[in-house]
């Protein structure tokens, strides 16, 4: 096989499972294992310099965060391979349901959603405790597997940061998603989530007080500008 042909080989033998905002995902066979290949595609709207930088940085960031989290026993797919020259990575395939669709289709009972939210709060606390900010916490980036166990995917926007502000913003982004996409379940879901987050996150008091401050401010950008 020619050098650089590995990606083409996988793509030819894989099945596309998702075409997202910045990447295409394929279900492939990786040395006999069912796996997912995530390929960050070129975007014509951005200049070449930025396009290349973004794709490389995201692929690297995602690979290292998944690997780091996995080592600490957090529920994420196992990283199998990453190619920073061609902007793709290969990870374990998680057989399960994407949480967003599962909630929208109402496949879980009320208590089941609460249980998922609780597990999730603990999981995000553990992630934040090792100073990984997910950067794109949405219910579309959570896969439910083995009953009601949440797994976290899509670490392309993740950052390594220890400051409470970054952690608070991470949670606030998640709150917004619940607000716009799961309006009905938001309150119950978030209460269960934040409860276990509080119990498990280091420095949770500071993080939550910042979260509350951001919630107040974020809404009134208009007003802040007017006063300036």
């Amino acid at each position: 096989m020619e050098i650089g042909g590995l990606l083409e080989y996988f793509l030819e033998n894989g099945v596309m499972i998702s075409k997202g905002a910045e990447s295409n995902l394929y279900k492939i066979s990786y040395y006999g294992k069912v796996a997912v290949l995530k390929y960050r595609v070129e975007k014509k709207y951005r200049i070449k310099e930025l396009d290349v930088k973004i794709r490389r940085r995201r692929t690297f960031g995602e690979a290292s965060s998944i690997h780091e989290a996995w080592k600490k026993g957090i529920n994420v797919p196992r990283l199998l391979y990453a190619d920073l020259e061609r902007y793709y990575l290969i990870m374990e395939y998680l057989e399960g349901e994407v949480l967003r669709e599962a909630i929208l289709k109402k496949i879980y009972a009320y208590e089941e959603i609460g249980e998922i939210a609780s597990s999730l709060g603990e999981m995000i606390a553990n992630l934040h405790n090792i100073d990984i900010i997910h950067g794109d916490l949405t219910t579309a980036n959570i896969i439910i597997k083995d009953g009601l166990k949440p797994y976290l995917i899509d670490f392309g926007l993740s950052e390594r940061r220890s400051d409470p502000e970054a952690k608070a913003v991470d949670i606030e982004m998640f709150y917004r998603v619940l607000e716009s996409t799961h309006t009905e379940e938001r309150e119950m879901f978030f209460n269960a989530f934040i409860q276990t987050y509080k119990e498990n996150a280091l420095n949770s008091k500071e993080i939550i007080s910042r979260f509350n401050r951001i919630r107040r401010m974020g809404r009134y950008i208009e007003e802040r500008r007017r006063r300036s």
Binding site: E49, L50, K53, I54, G135, D136, L137, T138, L157, V169, M173, R176, V177
Partner: peptide, 8 residues
């Protein structure tokens, strides 16, 4: 290259 700020 400049700070690229995107959160979700």
């Amino acid at each position: 290259e400049m700070p690229y700020g995107i959160k979700g």
